[in-house]
């Protein structure tokens, strides 16, 4: 199975400024691939390279198995794109933009655009200049989805959308995927990625820090387990277990903070009489933030 998006040591320098460096990505068909990273990490640069707006300094990229530069026109006909820095023609109405893009794409997407606009509660009869930020963003989504593309590349698609519309957007992504589309989206909103992405890539300083399934990150989230025993137990029995970072004792209560497998802790605790157990699922956010932060 060929990857829908594949980059090989993709590198882009703007003069001396690093955009991305030696980026190796592979996005499989049907995936929702989340792209996370701090400001200036290189997310938009990656999208703009894949769309052939800018050319790599070295390395290469393929989309649908086609060369991102040579076959860009075919790639773009099969892709829906939402730029991070969204700008639509200010003097045209939503309908005029839909119509113009229809003719440029040589397929009549007006019906589908109307359906999507209704879904997002967007009035297409308004001039772009007069849209609110969120409504302009909705129009950006409508134009990305309206030709039912095989690949959606969405650079921070939910900025400016209210929570209800965000939910609708998640549903649109799910529908697109069930229709066979692949989705590559960047975000700063961690719960969003956790919610809709299968695979997550974390990019920092122009390079990938880690690529994994969302589940794998979730398993690493710090958990806090608080056991109350019938009598005090030695901390040492737990502090040496894999992944355990902190153990504190409050009388007969033992509080364990761990990122490791929960099984070993439970088995160790079972050697004593457990009166009560509280467990707190840690924030996935902490896992991601750990990657965001600069190394000490």
């Amino acid at each position: 199975m060929t990857a829908i998006v594949e980059t090989n040591d993709l590198t882009k320098f703007y003069g001396q400024t690093r955009g991305v460096e030696n980026l190796n990505l592979a996005i499989q068909p049907g995936q929702v691939f989340g792209f996370l990273g701090p400001n200036g990490a290189g997310k938009s640069t990656t999208f703009r390279l894949l769309m052939d707006f800018i050319r790599p300094t070295s390395g290469s990229a393929r989309v649908f198995g086609l060369d991102a530069q040579e076959d860009s026109r075919e790639i773009r006909s099969r892709t829906g794109f939402m730029p991070g820095d969204l700008a639509l023609y200010p003097r045209m109405t939503g309908n005029q933009i839909v119509e113009f893009f229809s003719f440029m794409r040589k397929i009549d997407v007006r019906q589908e655009a109307k359906r999507l606009a209704e879904r997002l509660d967007l009035d297409l009869g308004i001039t772009v200049r007069n849209y609110s930020t969120g409504n302009r963003q909705k129009l950006g989504l409508v134009q990305a989805f309206m030709h039912r593309p095989e690949l959606l590349m969405l650079d921070e698609p939910t900025g400016g959308l209210d929570p209800i519309i965000q939910q609708e957007f998640y549903a649109m992504v799910a529908d697109a995927v069930s229709d066979g589309a692949t989705v590559f989206l960047s975000s700063h909103v961690l719960p969003e990625v956790e919610r809709i992405a299968d695979q997550v890539a974390i990019i920092r300083d122009g390079g990938l820090v880690r690529v994994d399934e969302v589940g794998a990150f979730r398993r690493e989230a710090t958990r806090v387990l608080a056991f109350t025993f019938s009598q005090p137990v030695p901390e040492a029995e737990f502090s040496t277990l894999e992944g355990v970072s902190v153990v504190t004792t409050q009388g007969t209560k033992l509080i364990i903070t761990s990122t490791g497998p929960i099984d070993a802790i439970v088995k160790a605790a079972a050697r004593h009489e457990v009166v009560e157990l509280e467990a707190h699922e840690g924030e996935l956010e902490d896992v991601f933030l750990a990657f965001y932060e600069d190394e000490p």
């Binding site: 707006f53 026109r73 773009r76 794109f81 730029p83 820095d85 700008a87 639509l88 794409r105 040589k106």
Partner: peptide
């Protein structure tokens, strides 16, 4: 400058 070029070039035009 106004960044509408990104939108235009995202369409299948050479």
């Amino acid at each position: 400058d106004s960044k509408t070029m990104d939108m235009l070039l995202s369409l299948p035009v050479s």
